[in-house]
């Protein structure tokens, strides 16, 4: 294995095309989708909205990815081999990176 395969970390959140259990949209609820969206935004971290900016989006994706790495032990092991660290250390590093995954947020005033 070439270790770069593992260290080049991709966007894992696009993989969440997965099943949605518990929040399946029944046919009758389809019409009040807006109220549902608000509910989802409150309930599920990272549910997008119209004004989401690039930074927020990226931060969200990165946190999702790190959480996914921490959850999938084989991927964690794969990274651990690539970086020659223990799996426990890899997990800790990923959790630490969840604090500021994309560096400092942009200045709000400048952005406007």
């Amino acid at each position: 294995m070439y270790p770069d395969e593992a260290t080049t970390r991709g966007v894992a959140s696009r993989v969440y095309l997965d099943n949605v259990c518990g929040t399946s949209v029944a046919a009758s609820d389809r019409f009040n989708i807006n109220s549902q969206l608000e509910h989802l935004q409150a309930k599920y971290v990272g549910t997008g909205h119209a004004d989401v900016n690039r930074f927020e989006w990226a931060v969200n994706i990165q946190r999702d990815s790190y959480a996914s790495y921490v959850g999938h032990y084989p991927i964690l092991a794969y990274f651990a081999i690539a970086e020659n660290e223990s799996i426990g250390r890899e997990r800790y590093n990923f959790m630490q990176k969840m604090l500021l995954p994309c560096g400092k947020p942009p200045d709000r005033d400048q952005e406007d």
Partner: peptide, 11 residues
Amino acid sequence: ETFGKSGCRRI
């Protein structure tokens, strides 16, 4: 007991 979506997710 079910409490959430399936998959290794953040929350």
